[in-house]
Amino acid sequence: MTAMAFDYSEPQSIAEGIALAGRFGPAASFIAGGTDLVIQMRRKSRQPSHVISLQALDELKQIERDGDIVTLGALLTHKQLEDYFAAEPAMLGLIESARVIGGHQVRNAGTIGGNICNASPAADLLPQLLTLGAEVELAGPAGRRWLKLSDFLLGPGRTARAQDELLTRVRFAMPGKGGATAFIKAGRRRAMEISLISVAVRIAGAGASDCGQVAIAIGAAAPVAFRASEAEALLHGQPRDAALLKRAGEVAAAQATPLSDVRASADYRRRLIAALVPRAVMACLERLAP
């Protein structure tokens, strides 16, 4: 295998990192955990001539909490995400999505910012973050700005991040009283496998017998992970009825635009959505505190 040749910088501040990205332009790439970029470089799908490491930027490894609002630094690893929310039953869905990203080595190195910026339609974190209404912060030469995650994701491998901007933080509101989350991934294996389909659900404000406010997001079924808005509206405030849940799965499947490939046909992926949406919603309802 031909050795990869590139220059390497390790900025000591966010401002320095942004300046380096502006100086070297499209030839430069940021690197965090490297679990995506290194593979892409080996496959020659990306060949930056300058790699800018973010590992010295401790500011991007912090967690802030203000009531139910959580702000996560982009350099937090998937394992750190699991550990932080381990004592939060309402966040079990996010833990479930982090646990199926690669193996232990990947989860200890890969970062949440990298998973988001890679913008894979099958990225495991994205559906659950979408159900939580997550926003991302971008820092660039003109300052900092917040974007809804749904507006940040533009297509496979495409985001609203400018070349000289750095994704710095992710924030969202945790489910409050009467709230829970759940995540289900369909693949040939539980982990170290690209999702055939993934389904994330967040419930808020549910009563003793109603569904409350339901957010449903689907991964690996469109150019970007997306909210199944029509299925959400169908369930909003409705009784916990099995037939209604089944109908919501069918509606979510109809909203999807999956591709056929060597791993599964588009029809099979739609069938998975129809089956997994009711299962994920029910799992979420069963997790609600009595």
Rank of each mutant, 00 (worst) to 15 (best):
L94C: 10
L234K: 09
E230N: 15
K61R: 15
G212R: 09
G219T: 02
Q255N: 02
L72H: 12
T2Q: 08
P48F: 08
A74H: 12
E96N: 15
A254L: 08
L81D: 06
L147G: 12
A274Y: 01
P290Y: 09
D68M: 04
M1V: 01
R227Q: 04
T77Y: 06
S260H: 04
E16A: 07
A173N: 09
G22I: 00
R263H: 13
T181C: 05
R171T: 05
F85M: 02
I69F: 06
G187D: 02
A253H: 06
V38Q: 10
T159V: 06
L72C: 12
E135V: 00
Q62S: 14
F6E: 00
E286Y: 05
A86K: 11
Q213V: 11
Q62P: 10
A242S: 07
E82K: 06
R99T: 08
L153N: 10
A248V: 07
G237A: 03
I273E: 00
A233K: 15
Q105A: 04
L125F: 14
I112M: 08
L276H: 13
L37Q: 14
E82C: 08
V262K: 00
P278I: 03
A243W: 03
L129D: 12
G219L: 02
L235E: 05
I112H: 07
L37T: 12
F226W: 06
A274D: 01
E250K: 13
L94T: 13
E230P: 09
L149M: 02
S198Q: 01
E82W: 02
V38T: 14
H236T: 03
L125K: 09
D58T: 15
T168H: 13
A252C: 01
T131V: 05
T159L: 01
D7K: 13
L245A: 02
D7C: 03
I112C: 05
R171S: 02
A264S: 14
V38L: 14
I95Y: 07
L244K: 11
V70M: 05
G22N: 07
D241N: 13
A182F: 10
A134W: 12
A254Q: 13
G93E: 01
L154Q: 15
K177N: 06
K44I: 00
L245E: 03
A134E: 04
A233Q: 15
A221R: 10
S13A: 04
Q238S: 06
V170F: 10
G133K: 11
